[in-house]
Simulated scan of single mutants.
Amino acid sequence: MPRSRDWETRSGSKEIIQQLESYTEVSPSGTGYHVLIHGDLPDGRNCRGGIEMYDQSRFFTVTADHVDGTPTSINERQDALQAVHEEFVAEDDTNDEIDATGGRRDDSSQSQTLGLEDEVLLEKARSAGNGEKFDRLWRGNTSGYDSQSEADMALCCLLAFWTGGNRMQMDRLFRQSGLI
């Protein structure tokens, strides 16, 4: 398991951590890093490859396993955030196609998935810490929700996580669930 002193040798991590220059910690898995900053993400995607960037509607576990050699404070880094987003996360217009509505469609988001076959994904979701909840919803049990719509949304959110946002896989799986 990588420790905080290894960040300078991890592929791609060093450049991003140095550019963002704010509080950095080792992730709960020990295989990645969280860089916490003050700033607002530009419009567009929020993840590509192994890099994820969020500024709202997201929960994550804070480890407080500070990375040596990085600031101990959370800094305002709007310009650096925009630069890192542009270089590592933003859409590449050369991969875009026009969809049926005339808007842009970026099929590269499909490569952001975990790449799991449906059955493997379902098994992992059932084995996760919230696997009991997932399995209840998967089987069509809406207890604990005020409406069918709320239960549908809860399952969709779990499927979004496990599919990495792959809309086609989410739709296919939801149609196999007991909530359909």
Rank of each mutant, 00 (worst) to 15 (best):
V26R: 12
D99A: 08
P2W: 15
W7T: 01
S27D: 13
P42K: 01
I51S: 05
S147R: 09
S149G: 11
G32Y: 03
Q19M: 14
D93Y: 05
T63G: 05
H66Q: 07
G30Q: 07
L114Y: 15
H66V: 08
M170G: 05
A64I: 01
S109A: 13
T70K: 07
Q169V: 11
K14Y: 04
R10D: 03
E87S: 12
L36S: 07
L114R: 15
A83H: 03
S22M: 01
D92E: 09
S29R: 04
D65V: 07
G49I: 02
E21P: 06
E15T: 07
G129L: 10
S73A: 15
F161L: 05
G102L: 05
K124H: 12
M1K: 06
A125V: 10
G144D: 02
A125Q: 10
I74P: 01
D118P: 15
E117T: 08
V89N: 05
S127C: 04
G32R: 07
N130W: 07
D171V: 11
G178T: 00
A154D: 04
E117I: 09
E119S: 14
D118A: 15
S57E: 11
L173K: 12
Y23G: 03
D106P: 02
G178E: 00
E123R: 14
G102A: 05
E117V: 10
T94V: 04
G129K: 12
C157T: 10
S127L: 07
A90W: 01
R139F: 04
D152R: 11
L116S: 03
D68I: 14
L155C: 08
R136M: 12
V84W: 00
D79V: 04
S27L: 06
Q112S: 10
E8G: 10
E25P: 07
G102T: 04
C157L: 11
I180E: 15
G103R: 12
S111K: 13
D40F: 12
W7Q: 04
H85M: 01
D6P: 07
T24E: 02
G49L: 04
T113V: 08
I16E: 06
T31L: 15
R126M: 10
G144L: 01
M153S: 14
L179K: 00
W162P: 02
L173P: 09
T70D: 03
A83Y: 00
T163W: 03
S127N: 14
S13E: 11
G39E: 00
R136N: 13
S57N: 14
V120W: 09
E119R: 13
E132P: 04
I37N: 02
S108L: 11
D107Y: 15
M53D: 02
G39L: 01
P28Q: 07
D79I: 02
D107T: 14
R172W: 00
R45D: 05
D96V: 14
V84Y: 00
D152W: 12
L36D: 06
L173A: 08
E117N: 10
V26C: 11
R45K: 12
G30M: 08
T72L: 13
E117R: 14
D68G: 13
F134W: 12
D106Q: 07
D152A: 07
A154V: 01
D96I: 13
L121E: 09
I37Q: 02
K124N: 08
D6N: 08
Q56N: 12
P2D: 12
N141P: 02
T94L: 06
G115K: 11
T163N: 03
